[in-house]
């Protein structure tokens, strides 16, 4: 009787499902967060009677065999990279991406991280950095005397110097991937390039195939509370029903042991 183990795979899968859902809900207010979804697949089948085998000398065959499955497995926790809604913050170094692309961030170990979280700051040297102090790539230096920083939809950063003339301070660039769902999340709203994502291609915001940058806005998480709660309910019920199977299998075992 494999039922015990089959139901166990079901409970384990739903447990992971709840973990994924709870992480989505926990990050409901995380800037630039992209939700994940657990995808399931059935496991291998045991063919007790194979379809197509001959049942008589006359050449009659088994039309449909007997296949007993062995449960469920988690195929992937795919990240859904849809656009989150934009929220106005009124802070001049808050940037949101509308459409495709990621900001590039220089990580302390020299590698490049990618993020949709555009809540940037200036560090002591006037360098544009993330909340964690990592430098935004390509580097943009905003002198202390520059004020009224404007960042255009195409990523051109401009400021007004002490003489009142507008000067260009730099150009933001976005990176995009063939398979953005294949990026590896490393926490802190950052992603790393992987073999699955493909190599990044960079260009200015607003170019063909790239999103545009929106100053004074931040991108909210793309988590939809109603969907998550509905998924949570179905995951919990599925967990319960699988535990029912374990109980039933246990009862059948106990019936057997109480035969004598």
């Amino acid at each position: 009787m494999k039922a015990l183990h089959i139901a166990a795979t079901g409970m384990k899968a739903q447990e992971l499902n709840v973990e994924v859902i709870s992480n989505n809900v926990a990050n409901m207010r995380t800037t630039g967060f992209k939700k994940q979804r657990a995808d399931f697949q059935d496991l291998l089948y045991q063919n007790l009677r194979r379809m197509g085998t001959e049942t008589s000398d006359a050449g009659t065959i088994v039309p449909t065999g007997i296949q007993i499955g062995s449960g469920v497995k988690i195929a992937s926790t795919a990240r859904i990279m849809s656009q989150g809604s934009l929220e106005q913050t009124g802070k001049e170094l808050d940037l949101a991406i509308r459409g495709e692309g990621f900001f590039q961030i220089q990580l302390p170990d020299g590698t490049t991280g990618y993020t949709r979280d555009g809540s940037f700051e200036r560090d002591a040297n006037g360098q544009l950095v993330t909340i964690d102090g990592y430098i935004v790539d390509p580097g943009i230096n905003i002198p202390t005397n520059a004020k009224d920083i404007t960042i255009s939809n195409t990523g051109v950063v401009q400021g007004v110097n002490q003489n009142g003339t507008t000067v260009e301070l730099g150009q933001l660039q976005l990176a995009r991937f063939v398979n953005k769902a294949g990026l590896e999340a490393i926490g802190d709203n950052l992603y790393l390039e992987t073999d699955a994502s493909g190599a990044p291609e960079t260009s200015n915001p607003g170019d063909d195939g790239y999103g545009s940058v929106q100053q004074y806005f931040l991108e909210m998480a793309n988590v939809d509370a109603v969907t998550e709660i509905a998924d949570l309910i179905s995951a919990q019920r599925a967990y319960e029903m699988n535990s029912q199977i374990i109980q039933a299998a246990d009862e059948m075992y106990s019936t057997t042991t109480n035969l004598r």
């Binding site: 009787m1 494999k2 039922a3 015990l4 089959i6 139901a7 795979t9 079901g10 899968a13 739903q14 499902n17 995808d39 399931f40 697949q41 059935d42 007993i68 499955g69 062995s70 449960g71 469920v72 179905s234 995951a235 599925a238 029903m241 699988n242 029912q244 199977i245 039933a248 299998a249 059948m252």
Partner: peptide
């Protein structure tokens, strides 16, 4: 029972 358990385990498998 095994067949039922397999169905139940895959109740959320698209």
């Amino acid at each position: 029972l095994d067949v039922i358990a397999n169905n139940m385990a895959n109740i959320n498998t698209s």
